[in-house]
């Protein structure tokens, strides 16, 4: 894995500065049924390849980021602030 993560705010920073939350999923609406919530909380696509994760730049800008990585090669393809643009909607 690239040891440097391209933070959009701080530039290329060592990955020790980051805390990893996990899969970047779209949160269901408050009125969603329990099936949707179960899917969101517990089920994962767990792909072998491209993946989006929430990382927190704990020792840097302290912003939540979306890191696009490859789970097989560990290459980081892109990294953006979590509030920028809409996330890829992979859920119903």
């Amino acid at each position: 894995m690239a040891s440097l993560v391209p933070c959009p705010n701080c530039g290329r920073r060592p990955k020790e500065e980051f805390t990893i939350k996990g899969a970047a999923l779209s949160r269901p609406g408050a009125d969603a049924d329990s099936e949707n919530w179960f899917d969101y909380v517990y089920l994962r696509d767990n792909p072998r390849g491209a993946y989006e994760e929430y990382w927190h730049h704990t020792s840097g800008c302290r912003r939540w980021l979306v890191v696009m990585r490859d789970t097989l090669t560990h290459e980081v393809a892109a990294c953006r602030d979590a509030t920028d643009g809409s996330r890829s909607e992979r859920r119903k």
Binding site: S3, K15, E16, A23, E53, R69, T71, L72, T73
Partner: peptide, 13 residues
Amino acid sequence: DGYNSYAQRGNLA
């Protein structure tokens, strides 16, 4: 290591 992986190898951190 903390991140999803299928690589069978980890990171120096």
